[in-house]
Design a protein around this nucleic acid. Sequence first.
DNA 1: GCCCGCCGATGACAGTTGTCATGCCGGATT
DNA 2: AATCCGGCATGACAACTGTCATCGGCGGGC
Lengths: 198, 198
Amino acid sequence: MIRVLIAEDQSMILGALAALLDMEADIEVIARAGDGKKALALAGEHDPDVVVTDIEMPAMTGLELAGALRGQRAKVIIVTTFARPGYLRRALDAGVRGYLLKDAPAKQLADAIRTVHAGGKVIAPELAAEAWESDDPLSERERQVLRLAGDGMSSGGIADQLHLSEGTVRNYLSEAIGKLGAANRVEAARIARRKGWL
Amino acid sequence: MIRVLIAEDQSMILGALAALLDMEADIEVIARAGDGKKALALAGEHDPDVVVTDIEMPAMTGLELAGALRGQRAKVIIVTTFARPGYLRRALDAGVRGYLLKDAPAKQLADAIRTVHAGGKVIAPELAAEAWESDDPLSERERQVLRLAGDGMSSGGIADQLHLSEGTVRNYLSEAIGKLGAANRVEAARIARRKGWL
DNA sequence: GCCCGCCGATGACAGTTGTCATGCCGGATT
DNA sequence: AATCCGGCATGACAACTGTCATCGGCGGGC
């Protein structure tokens, strides 16, 4: 029996995934969590073989959860909507053993759990290639500024929030726009978000 | 036996929801579709009692699907991530019988299917109140322009795409910004998207 | 017929944004 | 010590954006 913990913030999806896995004879869902923090606590309590987690969750993201579980016995599989190279990169850096997309066929999840439990790795093929060829060129400041700009905040507002001068903020944005080959701040933010860099 | 068709573009979620419903003794998943168009075709073929559909899907959205099924025997339940009043409004206008959030507990889905099949309605409580109090104030042109602006396109680019003059585009944006109480086009686009108006 | 709303346009003006050159500072490298 | 680099700043300039007044056309409601 492979003992699995599932972390996923959308209750209905959590329940559905659990139902899916409970149909497998050799897999047992021993715990469910609605966010990363609860998942971490439950992992300590139940000592699962495999942790299946979403990325975008309240309190603690799946990537943070993977980092916190790093080095422990439980093997982590990320299951997410987002085909973002930056996410995969960060996941692998956090010692994750599997990275699947919710676009993939349902049966792949059980297969991935078995593979990972047996010591293997499973990476969504759409991402395996792209992951290493595009690297985040942004500095931390550029990321901060871009995040806020992408939410519609003006240069002045961003400057206030980050305790910078407005000119500096415009410099960072100009830098980021150049690095990403965008035409303006909004496009730059979109590109960075799509890649998983924000 | 309640005969159900499920439409959902994320394969894994589709499979998981089907597994969840197959556990119910009185519910039978007779068909699955990965987009709205296939769902419409399959609905014609299999004549389901209830159609459970996501909103954001390729080829045809769940809202369009609901519109196309309007007046037919099958009853439609929307299951979506998005708590956007505008979506609920459009869903109700399309004759939908249920609107659930993926945040809701998994067991509510089966309950909703039974309720709807019995002639009832099920609306996510988080949304029931807000739905009617905030109405989309935007004109069709304003929506178009705002969509493109929100994607980072410049006034000139939007003008080219929509065959308008740049000044006119700026006028529409200014209008939209004013109506939504935003500070600029990006914030306006965010507000409109959050409400489900785009 | 008249008014109103939506559509589309122009021109003018102030404010914001994007770019670039240039400068200062402190920490790390050599 | 000299050099380099990232972070932060300034100033200047061109381009883009947001606002407003004004105009004409078209269709619907009263």
